[in-house]
Amino acid sequence: MNPPPQDAHLYVQGHVMHNARQLQYIRSCFAAIAGSAAGILGLTNLSGFLFYAVSWVILNSILMTRACGSKKYFINGYKDLVFDGAMNALLSYILFHTLLYGLVHLYQ
């Protein structure tokens, strides 16, 4: 774990925590939608994970354009936007992919 930057005292901890919670909520919802789409489309194996990777890149590009002054709102800048929460979102993606794939394609 990297130590916080020297100007970390400029950030309000409550606001940083709120931003992190909002990002986690956005990522979870987006992963659920992407997993549902992949399950309905019947994407499995490598194509399913490629779909997750593409959707993750799309989500992060949207977040980076909307939060263009991320240095102002996040202590670690773009690292918080791009990398934090990737595994949690992957678990949500797999959950919804499995659910919708089972409902749509398993009993055909």
Rank of each mutant, 00 (worst) to 15 (best):
L91D: 01
S55A: 15
K71F: 07
N2H: 01
M64Q: 15
K79S: 01
A38H: 04
Y73D: 14
V82H: 03
K72P: 00
Q13D: 05
L43K: 04
T44A: 00
A38S: 14
T98V: 08
N76F: 15
L81S: 01
Y11W: 09
G42V: 03
G35Y: 01
A31R: 06
S28N: 15
N2P: 01
I26K: 11
G85K: 01
M1G: 14
V57S: 11
A89G: 15
N76D: 09
A32R: 06
F96A: 03
L46C: 00
Y25K: 13
V16D: 13
S47A: 15
L10R: 05
Y78G: 01
I58E: 01
L59V: 07
N2Q: 09
C68T: 07
L95V: 11
N19Q: 12
H15K: 12
L95W: 11
L95A: 14
T44F: 00
H9K: 12
G69D: 10
A86I: 15
Y73S: 10
S28F: 10
L95S: 10
R21V: 10
Y25A: 15
I58S: 09
L63V: 03
L90A: 15
D7H: 06
A32D: 01
H15D: 11
I33A: 14
N88A: 14
H15L: 09
A67P: 00
C68R: 12
G39Y: 04
V57D: 03
D7F: 02
Q22I: 02
M64S: 15
Q24Y: 08
H9E: 13
L91Q: 08
G48I: 02
L99E: 04
L99F: 14
K79Q: 00
I26V: 15
L59K: 07
S61N: 09
D84I: 13
N88H: 08
L23F: 11
Y78F: 05
V12H: 09
H9C: 06
C68Y: 10
S55V: 10
A86Y: 12
N19T: 14
L63I: 06
F83Y: 08
A34N: 06
L90Q: 12
Y11V: 05
S70Y: 12
F74S: 02
Y73H: 14
A8I: 11
T44G: 00
L59H: 04
A67G: 00
I58Y: 03
A8H: 05
W56C: 04
L90S: 14
S61M: 13
G48K: 15
N45F: 02
N88C: 05
A34I: 04
T98W: 07
S92C: 10
S36G: 15
Y73P: 02
I33S: 11
F74K: 01
H18D: 07
S61V: 09
A31V: 02
Y52S: 06
T44N: 00
C29P: 00
N76L: 09
L59S: 05
H15R: 10
C68H: 10
N19V: 08
G14I: 02
H15V: 04
L43D: 00
A53Q: 05
I62S: 06
F30W: 14
I75S: 04
K72H: 11
F49K: 11
Q6S: 05
